[in-house]
Each structure stands twice: as C-alpha cells, then as structure tokens.
C-alpha cells in the first residue's frame, strides 16, 4: 500500500474553512487558510475535545468552537497561555489533490 492516501481535492476545502475526514482513530480536520495553505489535525481540541473543524480559521490558527482556545494549524499546539497539542497529520498536495500520510490516517488511536 502506498504511503499517502488521497482524501479529496484541494478545491473541496473552502478557504478559511475546513472539511472532516473520518478515520479509524477519530475524525481528522483538514483546514485551508486564507493564503491557500492546507493543514490537517486530529479533530479534537487538546482542552476538552472540541471539534476544531468547526472553529474559525484565521492566519495559520484555528479558534476552537467550544471555549476559544487558539490552536496553531502548523504544529497543533495551543497558543498563548494555554497548553496542549492537537495531533498533527502529515499532509501533501499533489496535482490539486490532498494526500494524508497513510500511517497516521489509518492508525487506530491517535
């Protein structure tokens, strides 16, 4: 099996928005920043598990919809005074398609 799995087209993810990829280890959120950069994180806020895919994207961060923690899309780390990390999923773009690392995508637990 290949190391990367195609999960959809770059155009499927709205700018400043996100889409969910359902995976065995829990949902994965794929985000697109204003500049078009794509990121993938486990869709679980390190605070109390809020679905980050439902948050607001700004710069290269997302604000969690439950209690407004700000999470870096690049690292998954909580910003500012908060501590915790949402697991980052390796992502590649090729020919307009979004590829996620198979090992993490298919892992049972994050």
């Amino acid at each position: 099996m290949s190391e990367w799995i195609d999960v959809g087209a770059v155009d499927d993810v709205p700018t400043l928005g996100s889409r969910v990829v359902q995976a065995p280890g829990g949902d994965i959120a794929v985000f697109k920043a204003a500049d078009g950069t794509l990121f993938a994180l486990r869709d679980r806020c390190p605070h109390k598990g809020g679905p980050l895919s439902q948050g607001m994207v700004h710069g290269h961060s997302v604000t969690c919809p439950l209690h407004n923690w700000v999470i870096s899309l690049k690292t998954g780390e909580a910003q500012g005074a908060d501590h915790g990390c949402a697991h980052k999923i390796p992502l590649r773009v090729e020919g307009g398609r979004i590829l996620l690392a198979a090992s993490t995508l298919l892992a049972r637990a994050a």
């Binding site: 065995p24 794929v30 049972r108």
Partner: peptide, 16 residues
Amino acid sequence: AHEFDPMANFSLAEAA
C-alpha cells in the same frame, strides 16, 4: 453542503 458532509470516510479502513 460542505459544512455537513465529511470529505472522505476511512473510518472502517484497516491499517497496513
């Protein structure tokens, strides 16, 4: 519609 539908579903896939 994109707000409600997942982009892809691998939840039943088996890890290699």
